[in-house]
Simulated scan of single mutants.
Amino acid sequence: MAKNMCTQNNTVKSKVSVYSSGEELMMDVSQSRRYQIFLPLLKWFVRQGITPNHLTGLSLLCGTGFCFLIGLDQNWAVPAALVLLLLHILLDGIDGPLARFQGTAGNRGSFTDTTADQLVVTFTTIALIHSGLATVIAGSLYLFFYTLVVVFAMVRSSLAIPYSWLVRPRLIVYAWIPIEIVFLPGTLSFLLWICVGVLGWKSITGFIQIRNKL
């Protein structure tokens, strides 16, 4: 039965996507592997009545919790914040396979997941600036261009102008946070500047493509 459900879910495709064709291919492969790895957990979620929206909401709460803890002047705060950030990433990686397992994958779930991800990117960037882990200019420009790329991706999707490739380096930034704190203080802003350059270029090309289509 699970095999039939998996086959059925693999045929579910979203008509609207904010991802490039290359990203969609990578996501299909990645989610297929995660489906196989987390299959027992997905079955348990179904038995407990847990939906992808529940996981997305919990992922959002974990990401928000990171923002509240990272700036606290307590010995336990930073480790707890990093654990919450890790939980956010893990939950964000499971909601998609669960949606496919339940046969509920579609535009609404994709939009909800993208919105939750963007909220966490916004909150974490502000928290990194507030805690002094990132400079104001680097963090602000990173957040601006990251948001602009996501918005342009949605507009391009509605206009049927797919990206050949699209970079959203939030996971790289998240992974660098413990490196910034423990091993290489002061390097996170340098990474953000690199991201600003890449995201800025994609924003310019995205604007040109959208304008030419109108």
Rank of each mutant, 00 (worst) to 15 (best):
L42A: 08
W76D: 13
L82V: 14
L90V: 13
R47S: 15
T135L: 00
L159N: 12
G109E: 08
I89W: 13
A134L: 06
Q209G: 10
Q31R: 15
R156A: 11
V196E: 01
A77S: 13
E23C: 13
T122Y: 06
V16A: 10
V167M: 00
T115Q: 06
I126W: 10
K3R: 11
F101E: 08
I37P: 03
L199I: 02
S20W: 05
R211Y: 15
D73R: 15
G96Y: 01
S30K: 00
H54L: 03
R156P: 14
I137M: 13
N53L: 11
D117K: 09
M26K: 14
R34H: 12
A127S: 08
S203I: 00
L55M: 08
L60R: 07
F207K: 00
M1A: 03
A134K: 00
S189K: 03
V46I: 05
I177C: 11
R170A: 15
D92K: 07
L188F: 03
F66E: 04
S30D: 00
S14Y: 06
S140P: 02
W165H: 12
T51L: 12
F38V: 02
S157I: 02
F123H: 15
N10Q: 13
W201R: 14
S140C: 04
L192V: 04
Y19Q: 04
A80G: 05
F145P: 01
T56F: 06
I210T: 08
G186L: 03
L199S: 01
L58P: 09
G71W: 01
A2V: 10
D113F: 03
R100D: 01
G197W: 07
L191P: 04
R34V: 12
V198L: 12
I204N: 03
M26T: 11
S158M: 10
Y174V: 06
R33G: 01
N53Q: 14
L90D: 02
N75C: 13
F66I: 05
D113E: 07
L41G: 02
R47N: 14
Y146Q: 11
R34L: 15
E180P: 11
K15C: 08
